[in-house]
Simulated scan of single mutants.
Amino acid sequence: MSLIGLKSSIHLLTFSIGFGGSFFYSYIASPLAFKYLERSQFSILQNHVFPIYFLGQTLIPSVLGLSSTIPLTNLSISMLVVSTITSGMNYLWLMPKCRKIKEERNYLINNNLDKVDGIETADFKQKTKEFGIYHGISLLCNLLSVGSLAVYGLTFA
């Protein structure tokens, strides 16, 4: 196999894994897991999957850029950069932040500090709101990452 053939194969497999895996996990597997697993089981699953998922999403655009056998356009380069930045934000900032907030919420729940007379405490409400904000930003970053890989695939095709 020639060097160009090897690079083309690496590029195609990397794109397939990056885009296909991200799309499948984000919009099929994860919603199904959320629907059918208990919250604690779902949380355990996500805590084990997300570090690998976001790291892969962060590194794959670089491999795509390096393994391209044709010159990349400004649009395709931009899409790889968007995918890298948004995935990197998830991996380096949002995932740890969301995990910390969840741990703080779980501490309140486990120590019966989440409710007083059946009413959620201000601390618990604040942690829930804070988690919602950071989780929403994470979802947006993930959407931008998957979407930018889709646009890259269309420009590359």
Rank of each mutant, 00 (worst) to 15 (best):
L64S: 05
S43H: 06
C98D: 05
R105G: 09
Y25A: 10
G18C: 08
K102Y: 07
N111I: 04
A122C: 02
I119K: 07
I44C: 00
A33R: 00
D123Y: 04
L75G: 05
V82W: 03
L13H: 13
G88F: 09
L92G: 09
Y91T: 06
N112D: 15
L75H: 05
F19N: 05
G56H: 11
S9R: 03
T84R: 12
Y107N: 14
L45C: 00
L59I: 15
A122V: 10
L94E: 14
I119E: 04
I119P: 01
Y53S: 12
I60M: 02
L3K: 11
S62R: 01
V63Y: 05
T69R: 01
D123M: 09
I52Y: 09
F42P: 01
F23G: 09
F42S: 04
G21D: 11
K7V: 02
A122T: 11
E120D: 12
S2Q: 06
H48I: 04
G88S: 06
R99Y: 14
F124H: 13
A122G: 00
V49A: 07
H48D: 06
L94Y: 10
E104L: 15
L72H: 04
F50V: 12
I109N: 07
L92W: 15
T86G: 03
N106G: 12
I119V: 14
V116D: 00
L3E: 14
S76I: 00
